[in-house]
Amino acid sequence: MPKVTALGRPAEDAAHASVSAKPSPKPSAESAPFWAAANRGELMIQRCVTTGRFFFYPRTYSPLVTGGATEWVTVSGRATLYSYIIDFRPPPAFGPGPNVIAVVELAEGPRMMTNLVGVEPDPEQLPLDMALMVEFDQRGDQAVPVFRPVQGEAQ
């Protein structure tokens, strides 16, 4: 488990220095179906059975109603760029160049943090609301969703 100092860079401790690869998430009980789907190349999130609304991140109950039942649904993978920062001092595995840390809004409603691929880390190339499509970045045994701009579909 990496440590970060209060407000600065990742702590220069032995545990972090050994992290030369991008993190490979270890699925939790609540999120196992999400990560299994990612390994099949699918973006699967939960829908509240009562309200029909999607939510993210994976949870035991729908947070939209008391103790609400949930169902897993493979979604379109389409998203738009909601906000981002460009990190000019990324952790070693994400450097040495700037790393775009984005939050995207899925077509189905929920938002998630991600990285953008296939685009320069340049604000001129990153207009908010630009159209994106999911793809997957393999991290050891686990794939993680990342997003790529869809050419000619900027909104």
């Binding site: 209060a6 407000l7 860079r9 991008k22 993190p23 990324p90 994400f94 840390i101 991600t114």
Partner: peptide
């Protein structure tokens, strides 16, 4: 750890 760390968040300045 599950939904933000995989994207290279290195410190509070990047979150």
């Amino acid at each position: 750890g599950l939904y933000e760390l995989p994207y290279g968040v290195g410190g509070l300045y990047s979150m």
